[in-house]
Design a protein around this nucleic acid. Structure first.
Lengths: 129, 129
DNA sequence: CCCCGGTACTCAGTCTTGCTATCTACTGCT
DNA sequence: AGCAGTAGATAGCAAGACTGAGTACCGGGG
């Protein structure tokens, strides 16, 4: 996938991570690994950590430091009540978008190639102030 | 909808406009009006014009100036071959996202509260830096 | 012994994109 | 003349994702 995905991820990635944390608590490295596993190959590590810090600062998650056998201690994130509320709101917005997009896709698919050549060519005065 | 939608629109709005133009050519004001009609109440006018200028400069659309009976001339945008390709790519990315999100939503809905305690519980020392 | 690779997290700087606010310009109504 | 509606352009800001580098801790190979 190209960089198209990069822009589409904005806002959506937060919802994805909240949804992951709704299933069970997790730490950054784990989430990153899971995302790569799922095919989100182009998500940078730094992005996930930055996102986790953001949602922590907005009070959507609780954090515990857990010592790891190898490497520095993990920061384990747990979705709290506010986080669940935020996730619910995310699903609402997502549904709205998904519904409208699905509608547009349907309309596009059965008529993507018509050439209605009724263009009256009186537009030849291409003058911009 | 709050500002949650604002971030989620990034990247998606371009796809929406391309999809609209795939159905029939249109000009900015028309597109803005249609979006408002569809419930995208919070999309600013300037945003649509800026987006149209961007996709024009990337060569995804052809433009004609058409004099209007009331007001200044309209800039009518038509999706060209490159634009159709871009739109196809958009649908690919969108489907990928939608599939994974749908999966996560399902997983969340039937088990938002289970504690799979497969993590050896040596994490009970709630130390926050 | 030191460096390398894997684990785990942090941070500064850049780019894209949407929003706000303002401006131009043309038409018709009051 | 002034105002509302139509139509578009633009400058400056904010948020989020990326790049790239850095810190820290562990174990194994040269």
């Amino acid at each position: 996938m190209g960089k198209q995905a990069t822009e589409m991820l904005k806002g959506v990635l937060e919802g994805i991570v909240l949804a992951i944390l709704a299933r069970r608590r997790a730490y950054g490295y784990e989430i990153t690994a899971w995302l790569r596993d799922q095919g989100f190959a182009d998500i940078a590590e730094g992005t996930v950590y930055a996102l986790l810090i953001r949602i922590e600062q907005r009070g959507l998650v609780d954090v515990q430091k857990v010592p790891s056998e190898k490497g520095p201690p993990r920061k384990v994130y747990t979705l709290n009540e506010q986080g669940h509320a935020q996730l619910a709101e995310f699903w609402t917005t997502w549904s709205f978008l998904a519904d409208h997009l699905e509608q547009l896709r349907g309309a596009d698919e059965h008529g993507a190639d018509e050439h209605s050549d009724d263009r009256h060519s009186d537009d030849t005065q291409g003058e911009k102030r």
